[in-house]
Amino acid sequence: MATGNPIVILAGLQGAGTTYQLHPLSRHVLETAFPTAQTVPSIFVGYPSKEDFERLHGPLWKQIAAMLTGVPAEQLPGGLVIREPRNGREHQVI
């Protein structure tokens, strides 16, 4: 992933919620840019059904990114994208 590309968070949609995980290449970028940032490996956020994914989670994506990266979302180099690996859909957040 070249410098200037957005930070990518992978989103695995399951029946009761979605698991968020930082893309390995984005993790590498952030480890270099913010070596002391405190991160978590993944986050699970529930929802009543998959149809609620964007509506309920969309407003939370910046907070989720901050927890996964240890960095406020606005400081992420190149912006932020939420990617659903199953179908390739991407949600531009920043």
């Binding site: 992978l10 695995g12 399951q14 698991t19 993944s42 690996p85 199953r86």
Partner: peptide
């Protein structure tokens, strides 16, 4: 690759 790429809980 699709299984490998998709995060799940539990992992």
């Amino acid at each position: 690759i699709s299984q490998l790429s998709e995060p799940t809980t539990p992992e």
